[in-house]
Design a protein around this nucleic acid. Structure first.
Lengths: 332, 332
DNA sequence: TCGGCCTATGACATCGTTGTCAACCCTAGA
DNA sequence: TCTAGGGTTGACAACGATGTCATAGGCCGA
């Protein structure tokens, strides 16, 4: 068992260069007031020893912090991974590093991740919040740690929040279907315990009501394939059969596509969330697209603005959806 | 401008509880030798002040480190995001935190991310390496920082590496097409500057040659839609027309699907990488599936084994692909 | 009653870095 | 020649925690 040589410190660099550690610090931090020849000697020593400053020690002493924490529900979900990638890009551009964690929808896990990030003295936190109360973050926020919520608002706390216009998005989808002659539209949503699912359901109710359409053909998740098939059968048979469905997110859209095939029914379709290959299906699928990359980017920008000293009141930004018209909204 | 109160430290907790900071430290770390009544008083003070230990200071003093760094090419790419999610889960289970960064295929950016992670004194690094030489990491590795490479080997350094059986995967695809009567198969790959793309091309050559098929209908990326269409036209017209194509990754597969539709040609198809909705297309697409979640999980496990003291020689693990048979491999 | 030992607790140095401030050198001006 | 002043440099404390070691107090047996 060989003793692994410990990492070189400024002290080692100073010894090799024949200067004090303070001078090394000055060179490392690009501070003025170091003679060029001295700087060269120090740089040479740094290169020779492959010195890397211990940022932990540096931040402890200086009080700075250059790490950002991001908590999403599931990093493997394309919506969140695209969002995370955008956040990371902005973070990197600001010379900060990003720590990420999946809260998996569990309040407890969200709190433990937040605590871990804050123990690491993260400069700020970006959070896709669970449904639970977030008053426990109030102290952090007032202590000056910027906090930004994404995709959903956090209960029990006021902070910058970036949302999608869920109601408006669904409305545009309903109106699109109606404009193509559909008068009997059903809604397949996700579990309304999810804030976004509930908002989209709201949107369905107001939009159908405004158009004088029936708004009671609704099934909220979680969905199993067999159940979905029988729901579709019921809605398409009997009197007043539906001619179209609106699905509440990409997972439900995919499930609905499978179910429509299994039940052998053909319906108009508009889905919330764009997805790859939506344009290659037969028929291609019209969708209500969100823009997670833009959401992540804007939220990260806001966070860095706060870090830069912006103390204006917290803002809530609602991002419009974009209706991507393909074929599946037309009347059959 | 209100002065934001600085975060409470062990010193503050000690004052409130009427003990020394060393006793607070003992309570926080669950060390024995503290009277129950004292422990209670300290815990009460911690709760009252909402004290969070400064892990940076703790790690500076103790030499511990509980952060892992992950560098992938692009966090938004589903392959890497699924991998990252798996890594994060394992990391979390081991009580560590994950820092992630997108190298974007640039050696320079990869190095700067690695340096940033190592400056933060990451306990270990998981890297999807660029094509460049990685000798610069040798010192770190011998200094005891566990290093694990994913998806591709790193040049110029020996370390644990987790790969997919790219050649074998392509071979299984070619054999599948041949078994369904295809004797004229083309290969659409990505830029062979990517290690995986080159390996898959190798696989195509050896597999077709072994079966006595032509191996010269090959087009490597980057692909533009128009170019792809004309390539397909050329291969399907003239004498000895192809009847099937094998695509080198999911992006090329999607591009090929678009091009086939645009060129109005119908060909057998097997694609490298599974993708959502592959089963809903007409015809459903047979794919050579990788398992990024398993790769990330295994690699992270390996890293924690190394951290736990495993000093056996570096291993290279090659993960088999799985042929997901759907309809598109059949002869038309 | 006293010594010895074990338990609970605290004083202090220390991790690697940076902020403060003093000291040094050199040159220019008197 | 002496002094003032600017440009360099270093000594030292401090950031918030933990490791080492000493000490105070209680209990036991002799």
């Amino acid at each position: 068992m060989t003793m692994s040589p410990s990492r070189p410190t400024m002290h080692d660099v100073a010894r090799v260069a024949g200067v004090s550690i303070k001078t090394v610090s000055r060179v490392v931090n690009g501070e003025p007031g170091v003679r060029a020849s001295t700087r060269e000697r120090v740089d040479a020593a740094i290169g020779q020893l492959r010195f890397l400053r211990n940022d932990g020690a540096s931040q402890l002493r200086s009080g700075r912090a250059d790490t950002i924490g991001l908590i999403v529900e599931d990093l493997a979900n394309p919506f969140y991974s695209v969002l995370a990638a955008a956040v990371e890009r902005v973070t990197r551009r600001h010379g900060h590093l990003l720590m990420t964690g999946s809260g998996e929808g569990l309040s407890e896990q969200e709190q433990s991740l937040a605590a871990a990030f804050l123990s690491r003295r993260a400069a700020g936190l970006l959070v896709v919040p669970t449904e639970s109360d977030h008053a426990w973050l109030t102290q952090e926020a007032t202590a000056g740690t910027p906090l930004v919520f994404l995709d959903r608002p956090a209960a029990g706390i006021v902070a910058d929040t970036f949302l999608t216009d869920n109601e408006g998005g669904v409305r545009s989808g309903v109106e699109h279907l109606a404009a193509h002659g559909h008068r009997h539209i059903a809604f397949l949503g996700d579990d309304p315990a999810f804030w976004t699912a509930a908002r989209r359901l709201d949107g369905f109710h107001t939009a159908t009501t405004a158009l004088g359409l029936r708004c009671d053909r609704v099934a909220m998740g979680p969905h199993d394939p067999a159940g979905l098939v029988s729901v579709l059968r019921a809605w398409t048979q009997g009197d007043d059969p539906i001619t179209a469905i609106l699905t509440g997110n990409n997972i439900v859209t995919v499930a609905a596509l499978h179910a429509m095939r299994a039940a052998d029914v053909r319906l108009g379709l508009v889905g919330f969330d764009d997805f790859e290959l939506a344009d290659l299906l037969e028929p291609s699928v019209t969708v209500i697209a969100q823009d997670p990359a833009s959401m992540g980017e804007q939220a990260a920008h806001m966070l860095f603005q706060r870090l830069a000293g912006d103390t204006t009141p917290p803002r809530t930004v609602i991002q419009a959806t974009r209706l991507v018209v393909r074929e599946s909204g037309r009347l059959r």
